[in-house]
Design a protein around this nucleic acid. Structure first.
Length: 489
DNA sequence: GAGCAGGAATCCC
DNA sequence: GGGATTCCTGCTC
């Protein structure tokens, strides 16, 4: 398992990165009819004032949209998704390593295992996997009919894609964070002030109490172990350590890949990328309301469209003020634009969102940071720049929302939706629809199809059989389906 | 009756 | 064109 993967998995941080509302509808009880259930959901569900609002995501009054998005569940998915993907990757790697026994390929397999080890940077993994794939291709040319070889080739290619996707994802996050906080991309060159900025941002993102003894130079921070982090920051030290390791790993991997590319294209080796590190520079701040997530509706979209250079940038910056025990939003000139006490981010806002269909879970932001970045023009009436505060305008999802993606997002937020759909076996990808009526209704609301019902929804699910996205589990059970790889990641 | 499976036509982005 | 929706028949539990 590589550093990137292990960092995600060992920290537990990424999974905790969800900032979904703590309030959630309780399951439908046996003696409760649907109407009662719906009424109760309206009461219990934090951001629902009507049925349609169930999947809207408007910030509550007094909360900047930037902050809201940053902590909103559907925008805080990326790292968690990365962790999930990483877990599957790890599992897949292990299976693959164990199952690949073709004689003569041991060297490559060994390299593969090495590449999966903790110390191997992603670029090395990529190179080794490429080598491995080439070997497989040669094997195919020789008309070897060993199915496991072919399967392994496919696995390798798939793993390669996932790994690359995770790295890209991280790079995008980091890139936008750098722009937002005016940080060098290389954490080794961070000053104590840089570290302080980053830590404040992390604390805000993960709702951690600000540590008092971690405002050190980046080089010092990077030399510290997790235990040392925890010693200095008992609450969240592990999170900060893990996040920093993620940053470091992604940065180094990116540089390594970049160097490789440069060498290939120019025949010139950049001997020192540390001081002259060139990170993909985010684009200029934009007023566009189309987020990356809006552009990227699916994993494939993400793979096809990802470009760190298109990451939007927030003109403002939020940070945690230990003095005031709140979060403040800074303008670029340093003046405080807003000052917000800590409070639940999903307090119901009855007045907003009538004209705005916001993110449903299936609008999950591919990158929490990236998605929050484009929101400098917050639309909450508090932190608005260059736009009328009285005319809130939230991004409307314009891309295709896939049912499988929608369900995945519900599954990944069990606190909210376990009464509707829940994992039966997360590893296996098996899930159960607990309330077909509600799932269909939610889907109908999301797609603006009032006549949607479970019969139609299930027909759509069955369309996925042919596409290899979903299937019924071997042991057929009613309302139980199974995501097939890689959709179970 | 509810869920499942799949064909076919249609709609919509 | 792809994905989803709508409608349908027939089957199983």
């Amino acid at each position: 398992m590589d550093t990137l993967t292990s960092t995600m998995l060992t920290s537990g941080t990424a999974l905790d990165g969800y900032r979904w509302n703590s309030l959630s509808p309780s399951p439908l009880s046996d003696n409760e009819d649907e109407e009662e259930y719906c009424r109760r959901i309206k009461v219990e569900h934090p951001f629902e004032v009507d049925s349609d609002a169930f999947f809207r995501n408007a910030p509550p009054p007094g909360i900047s949209h930037q902050m809201h998005k940053r902590t909103a569940p559907c925008t805080a998915i990326p790292l968690a998704s990365c962790a999930t993907a990483a877990a599957s990757l790890s599992s897949a790697f292990c299976k693959r390593s164990n199952g690949f026994t073709k004689p003569g390929s041991l060297a490559n397999e060994s390299a593969f295992e090495d590449a999966s080890s903790v110390s191997a940077p992603l670029s090395v993994v990529k190179a080794e996997q490429t080598s491995h794939s080439e070997d497989c291709s040669r094997s195919n040319e020789l008309s070897l009919t060993n199915n496991s070889v072919v399967t392994s080739c496919n696995d390798a290619a798939q793993m390669d894609i996932y790994r690359d996707l995770i790295l890209r994802h991280l790079i995008q996050d980091i890139s936008t964070t750098c722009s937002k906080l005016a940080l060098p991309t290389d954490p080794y060159v961070w000053t104590a002030e840089h570290s302080g900025r980053w830590i404040s941002d992390m604390c805000m993102q993960f709702q951690l109490p600000p540590p008092r003894e971690l405002f050190l130079a980046g080089r010092v921070l990077l030399s510290m172990s997790q235990e040392e982090f925890i010693a200095r920051a008992p609450e969240g030290g592990d999170t900060l350590h893990a996040q920093l390791q993620l940053w470091k790993t992604a940065f180094e991997s990116y540089n390594q890949q970049n160097n490789g590319a440069n060498q290939n294209s120019q025949g010139v080796t950049q001997s020192n990328t540390r001081l002259g590190a060139s990170w993909p520079a985010p684009s200029s701040p934009t007023l566009s309301t189309e987020t990356n997530a809006d552009r990227l509706g699916s994993t494939q979209d993400y793979v096809n469209n990802f470009n760190p250079n298109t990451a939007d940038v927030a003109p403002n910056m939020s940070y945690y003020s230990a003095n005031n025990n709140n979060y403040q939003t800074l303008q670029q000139d340093g003046s405080i634009l807003s000052s917000l006490p800590q409070q639940p981010f999903f307090a119901t806002n009855n007045s907003q969102n009538a004209a705005n269909i916001l993110h449903s879970p299936s609008d999950s932001e591919i990158s929490s940071n990236a998605s929050s970045m484009n929101d400098g023009n917050s639309t909450d009436g508090v932190c608005v720049e260059g736009r009328s505060a009285s005319a809130p305008h939230f991004p409307r999802h314009s891309g295709t929302v896939h049912l499988w993606h929608f369900i995945r997002e519900l599954l990944d937020h069990p606190k909210q939706y376990s009464s509707c759909v829940r994992w039966v076996d997360r590893e296996e990808g098996t899930f159960k629809i607990e309330s077909s009526h509600h799932l269909a209704r939610f889907w109908g609301q999301r797609k603006n199809r009032a006549q949607m019902n479970y019969d139609k929804l299930s027909r759509s699910l069955r369309q996925y059989y042919k596409k290899g996205i979903i299937q019924k589990p071997e042991k057929k059970q009613r309302l139980v389906y199974k995501f097939l790889p890689p959709y179970n990641l």
